[in-house]
Simulated assay, not measured.
Amino acid sequence: MSLLTLNNIEVVYDSVFLAVKGVSIEVPDGGLVALLGANGAGKSTILKVISGLLKPERGLVTRGQVRFAGEDILALDPPERVRRGLVHVLEGRRVFEHLTPEENLLAATSMHRDRARIRQLVDEMFSLFPRLAERNKAKAGYLSGGEQQMLAIARALMTQPKLILLDEPSLGLAPFLVDEIFDTIRRINAESGTAVLLVEQNAVAALDVAQSAYLIEQGRIVMSGTAEVLKSNPDIQQAYLGGSSQVDYHAVKHYRRRKRWLA
């Protein structure tokens, strides 16, 4: 069963620039789906369509439908979407630098009224991310990039989401921290059943944790399938994984070739 469905979405910025062109995506209930693509392909725009954060950037959905848990949510504002169980971790972490890790977590609990439950959620986050508990006396602005990313994910989880949108969680992190972040993403999905839509340029890491994936190029989905199918496709290997130069046009469900990737 699909928890999230995007059907033929088109997005225009400033009433002029068509950034996303007929995109359709599904995220199953409890699934872990990756959205891959180069810089500027439209990945972050798609996440903002889902979370409702297009308007501040003068973006507008001009066509299509976004359904979450069986309901059309395009008319809902971002706070209401969070209350329905959808949360977005933006690129660049965006933690409250003047607050401690615990204060950052508490800032995401306005929807909760039970203080005992809030305390339990904080303890769960510190158990999931022990490094945050160790650094709890420090201001978030003094945390390392990896620690800030952990805090951003933990803060999102404080809302108890059904679906978490992650935008470039590995951006700017050392390789060992990337492994740690992706192990945590896999654990969150497996243990809590929280669905994940993961936007990444690091195709190797993303396809290692995802169950299925989509590839977006110039605002269009050009390839989709299981993670294993995409990893084995020679074009994916050449453009993203540094592998074969052979082209297989039939190894994935959808694929339309218009030009040589990244030429």
Rank of each mutant, 00 (worst) to 15 (best):
I164W: 02
D167L: 14
F126E: 01
A133R: 00
P175R: 06
E124P: 03
V87G: 09
T159S: 15
A69K: 08
V178E: 13
Q160L: 09
L151C: 01
I73P: 02
R94G: 10
H112P: 03
I164M: 03
S127K: 12
L74Q: 08
H98R: 13
I118M: 13
G145H: 14
Q65K: 06
R131L: 02
R93F: 08
E134T: 02
G64F: 02
R84F: 11
I181M: 00
P169I: 04
S127M: 00
I181C: 03
G64K: 08
L163Q: 05
K139S: 15
A133Y: 00
R84K: 14
A75G: 15
P161H: 10
A154G: 05
T159I: 10
L165F: 07
D179M: 15
G70V: 00
A154P: 05
R83L: 07
K139D: 11
I181H: 04
D77A: 12
S110N: 05
R115A: 13
F96D: 05
S170M: 12
L106H: 07
E168W: 09
L163G: 06
K139V: 08
G70S: 07
F96P: 15
K137C: 05
L90E: 11
E102V: 08
P78H: 01
R84A: 13
H98Y: 10
A107E: 04
D167S: 12
R67E: 09
D183S: 07
